[in-house]
Design a protein around this nucleic acid. Structure first.
Lengths: 254, 254
DNA sequence: CGGATAGAGTCAACCGTGTTGGCATAAGGG
DNA sequence: CCCTTATGCCAACACGGTTGACTCTATCCG
């Protein structure tokens, strides 16, 4: 039975599979990334991954509690790649900007995987490390704790939300081009100018702008806002907090 | 065969189902919303929806090309509800703010449905109407077309991205509480303060801030930025456009 | 050096999923 | 009032995740 998954460091016996490959968490995650790239964001199945590994599908349950657990591990891998690619300079604004772009582009380097995982919180070590890093940048920059937390929250959720959105669009564009490209042109292409004057008037600009991500624009807006807060600090109490709309939950302590 | 789906307005014969209900696109979408709320974001299946409707699962294919098509219709419904709830005042900043919050809260009113649909572009009429409305607000406010398009893009993608992210978190919190709540407390709860000093130092503030959405904060940052642009317009050419990172595509024309 | 042990890989099977082709039937036009 | 055909139903298919029982072998211990 596959009830208990043995944690990676405690793994001692590595029996080669029937087709000779020696499995590991790393190998499985990397193979999953390849399968996702080749078969699309819905194309990662236990059977297919098993075949790609040269192993029986059920073997995966010796390493992950289920496909959902594997999905979280993939997300953790993407976050880790972002963190590895990034280096601190000491200038808070530049560092945050670079880290945000690293996360965003790291996810978009694997659109199918990102579309699958970006909106999920993994709770794994590399993700926590990113959280700690962001908070460190902000607090070291001189933001008082409430502002630092507010900005941390906005920054990480903004980055992940856009990673998920952009990756979804990119993955959709790469796979299933047949079905969707058709819809783009047939539905959106020529809208009647009398019904949609503003869209018609800006059609050319839209066509040039929409294929890019809006993330850099919004990120810069947020950083501008933060800079203003730092030079001219205003208390800014907890916002009117409308109806309970829970956001992404993350690092917390009692 | 279910190759050709009859468009809603052309539907003439409405044969009641064996259990007496008379089907329609509206009824199916609304029932799907109910099923999603009751069974979670992965709980919408053809068989379950068929049962909820008192109809055979295959009947759905007379109304939608497949589950994916139905999903898009659900997204369109959410966007429509947002638009219905919103009214223009003529003050562009307040109008945009209200529209953004309407979209966000409309999606979060159906978290499971939103988690399923918010990152997909429907290409259906109500969605296009929202796009047209946003562009209209910005152009009427006096933004030159390039700035209007840039802001439209940032605004709509920001709103949808946060709708998806927040809805995902909210849906996850509501369903499967058994599996996930456990992970929150066990993994994130008490992190060693020596390894994660910044998280530890702000733990109380984080716990208070994270359960809310960061959307209002980021939206206001974007609107502040826009206001500044409007009063002191600067050319701001196309940003350095890094590696091709397609964003959400939308209304376009040749 | 040689069992004993239990962890890793395999096999077959379960149930639930989307989807389709063929069929029955009743709604509504003529 | 009949005929056409849109609409709902049925049975079946291929494929999804997951599990329980099993084999085999890498490693531990004597």
């Amino acid at each position: 039975m596959a009830k208990q998954v043995v944690p990676e460091p405690a793994r001692r016996r590595r029996r080669p599979t029937r087709r000779g490959t020696v499995l590991s968490e790393r190998l499985i995650v990397h193979t999953a990334l390849r399968v996702l790239r080749e078969h699309g964001s819905t194309g990662l199945t236990a059977r297919r991954l098993g075949t790609a590994l040269g192993a029986d599908p059920s073997t995966l349950y010796r390493y992950f509690a289920g496909m959902d657990d594997l999905t979280r591990a993939i997300g953790e891998e993407l976050m880790g790649q972002a963190l590895d690619r990034w280096t601190a300079t000491g200038e808070w604004r530049a560092d945050l900007r670079a880290l945000g772009r690293a996360i965003h582009s790291s996810y978009l380097a694997h659109p199918q995987a990102a579309a699958l995982t970006a909106s999920r919180v993994t709770g794994r070590p590399r993700e926590i490390a990113v959280d700690e890093t962001i908070l460190g940048i902000l607090r070291t920059a001189g933001f008082p704790d409430p502002a630092a937390v507010r900005l941390y929250h906005a920054f990480i959720d903004l980055s992940l939300a856009f990673a998920a959105l952009d990756a979804g669009a990119l993955a959709l564009a790469e796979e299933a081009r047949a079905t969707d490209e058709e819809m783009w042109t047939s539905t959106y292409a020529q809208l009647p100018a009398e019904s949609y004057p503003h869209i018609a008037a800006t059609a050319r600009l839209l066509a040039a702008r929409m294929p890019h991500s809006a993330y850099p624009v919004v990120l810069d807006a947020l950083l501008d806002n933060a800079t203003a807060q730092l030079t001219a600090p205003r208390p800014e109490p907890t916002p009117p907090a409308g109806p309970a709309r829970p956001g992404r939950q993350s690092a917390s302590g009692s």
